[in-house]
Simulated assay, not measured.
Amino acid sequence: MATSLDGNHYSQFSYIMQPLFSRQGNIHTYKEVKDREADLVFEEIRREILEGLLSYKHRFQEGMPRLGQQGYSFLDDKAVAEFLSSQLKKGRVFHTGFVKDETGAYWIVKEYSAGSNKNHPKHEMLAWLLAQGRANLAEIRFLAPQEAAALDFVDKRRIADYYLTRVIIGSNISGLPHLDSAQAFAGIFVANILMRKYDHHILNIAYANGIPVAVDHDRIFECTDLSREEEIFNVFVGLFLCNAILSGIKHFTDSPVPIMNTIIESDINGLTKLIFTVMGNFNGGKGFVSAEMLNIEYIGAAILEFKEIDNARELAKAAGYKAQDLEDVVGAIAANQETLG
């Protein structure tokens, strides 16, 4: 059902959004980007992701010297480039719309659909707010009514369902907390564990001048149930490792390793067995650690930074959580901070 911004709904929207507008400062001006300019930006996105992905693949390969002993081999760079081209389509990358603000910065407009777990504004915003100064995540903005007025493709009755994510390319990014790739991967690794973001895989990383930046954080805090904490955490670990390790093997090698994109809890034992078989036979875990340059010192520093978050309630309110959802996510953040170590 469309959400009207008249009367009570507008008041609710303003209550949710105003804290964030206050944090961001001035209301912004956006203009839709089309045609040749959009094509040029898309090509820059594609080029930077391809360069970053190939470097990731080469490090993954260095960490898995035993793959050949199993009768399999890594794909060449051309095959990986073809795979990326099949995944990166302009319409898919730019989602609902592509705009630039008054400073010339580019933004992708995403839209939430009721009943879907994809493109959820409050999840994306909370992830970015939690990560600010701690991990390289794509910046998120909400749309104010006066900002949306100039965008014809935005349904003005449903402004709260739209949000913007900054385009990740070197010419469009500044102020990242980590400009060293190993530190950046460590920060993203810890952030995703804190937020129980299990789809930690190669297509959820973009690159700005070779530095990794995480994108697409609409699946956070789903593997959280404080009444069954240990059981649910095991589900999260299985899904996380499936995405982190098995997806790399699937897309970088000719090994017929199956990928389970969705899983019900009763399948977790089978998934875990598959993961550890792959890790044992192929050194898949070492491939992942090598690809992301995971360093104990950097991971430890990232853990300390995320454990220092003491304003989770304020951040969750600014992201749009309220009532029981607010209590649940604040409780989950506190519990997950404890389990970081």
Rank of each mutant, 00 (worst) to 15 (best):
M1V: 10
L5Y: 09
G7F: 04
Y10P: 00
Y10H: 05
Q12G: 07
S14E: 14
I16L: 13
I16V: 12
M17W: 13
M17F: 15
Q18T: 15
P19V: 08
L20I: 09
F21A: 14
N26C: 04
T29C: 07
T29F: 12
Y30N: 08
E32T: 15
E32F: 08
R36E: 12
A38Q: 08
V41G: 00
R47P: 03
I49M: 14
G52L: 05
L54V: 13
S55D: 10
H58P: 01
H58V: 07
M64Q: 08
M64W: 06
G68P: 04
Q70W: 02
G71D: 06
S73Y: 03
A81Y: 04
L84Y: 02
S86C: 09
S86K: 04
Q87A: 08
Q87G: 00
L88G: 03
L88Q: 01
K89R: 14
K89I: 04
K89G: 12
K90R: 14
G91H: 05
R92M: 00
V93M: 14
H95T: 02
F98Q: 00
E102D: 14
G104R: 00
A105S: 15
A105Q: 14
E111F: 04
G115K: 01
N119P: 06
N119V: 01
P121L: 02
P121S: 03
P121N: 02
E124I: 04
E124D: 13
W128S: 05
L129S: 03
L130V: 06
A131W: 01
A131S: 14
R134S: 06
R141Y: 12
L143Q: 05
Q146K: 15
A149Q: 15
A149R: 14
R158K: 11
D161R: 03
V167M: 09
I169V: 14
G170L: 05
S171C: 00
I173Y: 00
G175E: 03
P177S: 05
H178F: 10
D180N: 10
D180R: 08
A182Y: 04
Q183P: 00
A184R: 07
I188D: 11
F189T: 01
A191G: 13
N192I: 00
N192A: 10
I193T: 13
K197M: 11
K197T: 08
Y198M: 06
Y198R: 07
D199A: 10
H201P: 05
I205M: 13
A206C: 15
P212S: 09
V213M: 01
A214R: 09
E222Y: 12
D225S: 11
D225I: 07
E230H: 07
E231V: 07
I232L: 02
I232Y: 06
V235Y: 15
G238V: 12
G238H: 08
F240L: 13
C242K: 14
A244N: 09
A244E: 07
F252T: 11
F252L: 07
I264H: 11
E265N: 08
S266Y: 01
L271H: 07
T272W: 06
I275Q: 08
F276D: 02
T277C: 00
V278K: 04
N283I: 00
K286H: 12
G287N: 08
F288V: 01
F288C: 05
A291T: 03
L294T: 11
N295L: 05
N295Q: 08
N295W: 01
Y298V: 02
A302D: 02
L304F: 04
K307E: 09
K307D: 05
K307I: 01
A312K: 05
R313V: 10
R313K: 14
G320C: 04
A323Q: 09
E338N: 11
E338G: 07
T339R: 15
G341E: 10
